Computed example of a mutant assay.
Amino acid sequence: MQAMVASLSSAFNDSWFLDTAATHHLSHNEGQLSNIQPYQGKDQVTVGNGKQLPISSIGSKYFHSSQKSFQFQDVFHVLQLTTNLISVSKFCTDNNSFFEFHPNIYLIKDKTTKQILHQGTIERGLYKFPSTPCHDSVTSSYSHSAFIAQPKNEFSKWHNRLGHPTPLILKQILASCNIPCNTNTKQIFCACQLAKSHKLSFSSSTSRVSHPLALVHSDLWGPAPILSTTGARYFLLFVDDFSRFTWIYVLHSKDQVSSTFLKFKALVETQFNISIKNLQSDNGGEFKALAPHLAKHGIHHRFSCPYTPEQNGWVERK
């Protein structure tokens, strides 16, 4: 059994310190342990100077928190020790966790979820574990685990992390959690200005052309999650603005839009003896391919602004 620790003073009382070179948990105070039994083995603990110390008894210890109860199994009671030591490897094995060591703090995280279970500090160059199994003291040290190790005066970082609250609410949150941060900022967050702005509602259109085919609304829907009986995934709509009459064509692919429009144009112009004057769409890629045909026949292409389906509302509702 090995235990290695270097310190400036041995007056640590009943504090517990993390030891990455210890194979077992060690304590000099039997009163801190429970389930104590005399040690029947012949092993001894070898300390840093090579001296071997006898093991008096063996017990267990628990530290409770709101996140998890940490258990120290098989803690050796060694009378000649002056410091309580926690074996990092044994702790990780018994508690299904792992450690992160930082210059000023250390973190204990759940091995599966990576959730922070505890945050500890450094004392005299050593990583110190809570000396008493007090629920309140342990909770206060990590209950705000999302707020640890944050640089001061980063008001914008807290603003982003907490879901873009108003500056007044954010100041109240930071103050209630005792988080040091410079709240005397008048910074304007561009993302909030854009995300919280409202688009004016569209008024109902009352315009209507004076004769059939003066304006035809068109839109493509798809792809459908399920094929039709003919294997089609799309349908193309044409709505006459004057009569609101609707033509529907089922398509297997988007590249059929151009040929389908030419069929539609030939049909309606022959049946009504009137030429199509205007075509209105959302200017999708499938309609951009119509540009040469529209220019050839003198048809004006009207299209809605990007991300504004309201401007093509008749056929969108269809």
Rank of each mutant, 00 (worst) to 15 (best):
G41E: 04
T46L: 08
E30V: 12
Q37A: 15
H25W: 04
Q52L: 06
N35K: 15
V45N: 01
Q52Y: 00
Q37D: 13
K51H: 03
T23M: 03
Q32S: 04
G50C: 07
K42I: 11
G50W: 03
L26P: 00
Q52G: 00
H28G: 02
K51E: 03
D43F: 11
S34Y: 08
K42L: 15
G48N: 03
V47P: 03
N35C: 13
I36N: 03
G31C: 06
N29D: 09
V45Q: 04
Q40R: 15
K51V: 07
E30A: 10
H28C: 08
L53W: 01
V45S: 03
E30Q: 13
K51P: 00
Q32R: 12
V47D: 01
Q52K: 14
Q52W: 00
E30Y: 06
K51N: 06
H28I: 02
V47H: 07
Q32M: 12
Q32L: 13
Y39A: 12
N49R: 10
H25P: 00
S34R: 12
K51A: 10
N35E: 08
G31T: 07
Q40T: 14
G50P: 01
N35T: 09
Q44S: 11
G31A: 09
H24G: 05
T23Q: 05
V47K: 13
L33H: 08
H24W: 11
G31Q: 07
G48Y: 06
V45C: 05
L26N: 07
Y39V: 13
L26M: 10
T23C: 03
E30C: 10
Q40Y: 13
D43L: 13
H28A: 07
S27M: 02
G31M: 04
G48R: 12
D43T: 15
D43V: 13
H25I: 04
T46H: 06
N49G: 09
Q37C: 12
H28S: 05
L53Q: 05
N29V: 02
P38I: 14
G41T: 09
V47T: 09
V45R: 01
S27T: 07
N49L: 10
Q37L: 15
L53H: 03
I36R: 05
H25D: 05
V45A: 00
G48M: 05
G41K: 13
S27C: 09
V45F: 02
Q44H: 10
